[in-house]
């Protein structure tokens, strides 16, 4: 079974984003970028499936600028077999990403797509579900455990209040949550080997997908600042403060 893993190049998890002065967006100039953390979990899961003999090939796809090639290389160093870069400098919304991925799925015929549940930049949490809908495939979002059982995939999901297990007919889309696995670090020899793995470069037009955004950004602003309050000396002082504030 071939496994397709889409990955996104985003601002590094540890960097505090700054809103541009003209309110047009987030300042990404000279900011450290990295692979979306949930996508690392997706690649790790695919690699583990391959190590268990459940997956035969792992194709890593990114839709983004030329530098997204570096993100694909990280995935290849973690154990991916080859990459597809759909190169564009435009901002691509989840719906357009899902449409491009659907075309790639038609061409590649994977048995499973494993995607991150959300990208930590725009926090939409939509691409995997949209892809599943466009393909008429079943989905299991927010996965914390994945097990293949013949032609079905048993996926345990993180839901409000606990866990839920679904049985999906393959092919299917799974989106990953934090506790699914702990992604490996790419070793230096594997990083060197990954440099020789093939990456196809395409454009959105190659797939006939119109990526014109449906949502236009009116403005991006700083959230309301919350002022720091006061330090209290001890538990009694804290209780007195909470009582006078009517909180207890």
């Amino acid at each position: 079974m071939k496994v397709l893993v889409p990955v996104k190049r985003v601002i590094d998890y540890n960097v505090r984003p700054r809103v541009k002065a003209d309110q047009s967006g987030i300042d990404l100039a000279n900011v450290k970028m990295a692979m979306n953390p949930f996508d690392e979990i997706s690649i790790e899961e695919a690699v583990r499936m391959k190590e268990k003999g459940l997956a035969t090939e792992i194709v890593i796809v990114s839709i983004g600028p030329a530098q997204a090639q570096e993100t694909i290389r990280i995935g290849l160093a973690m154990g991916g077999d080859r990459g597809i870069l759909v190169q564009t400098d435009a901002a691509v919304e989840p719906l357009a990403v899902a449409k491009i991925l659907a075309k790639i799925v038609e061409a590649e015929q994977p048995g499973l797509v494993i995607a991150g549940k959300q990208a930590i930049d725009d926090d939409s949490n939509a691409t995997g579900q949209m892809l599943a809908a466009l393909l008429d495939w079943p989905q299991a979002t927010f996965a914390s455990a994945v097990a293949k059982d013949g032609e079905t995939l048993k996926v345990t999901r993180e839901v409000d209040g606990g866990l839920e297990t679904l049985a999906l007919q393959l092919p299917a889309v799974v989106t990953t949550d934090l506790r699914l696995n702990e992604p490996r670090f790419a070793s230096l020899p594997n990083i060197m080997k990954a440099k020789k793995k093939p990456i196809d470069t395409k454009s959105p037009a190659d797939y006939g997908v119109d990526i014109t955004p449906r949502l236009s950004v009116v403005k991006v602003t700083e959230p309301k600042k919350r002022e720091a309050g006061e330090k209290v000396a001890d538990v009694d002082a804290l209780i007195a403060k909470l009582k006078s504030a009517g909180a207890i």
Binding site: A126, G128, Q129, F142
Partner: peptide, 23 residues
């Protein structure tokens, strides 16, 4: 925007060819 709403809404949006506005 609960685990149920987040799970199902993008499917509906994609079928309607609509870009969801999340959360």
């Amino acid at each position: 925007a609960t685990s149920i709403g987040k799970n199902v809404s993008p499917r509906i949006a994609a079928k309607l060819d609509v870009m969801q506005v999340s959360e």
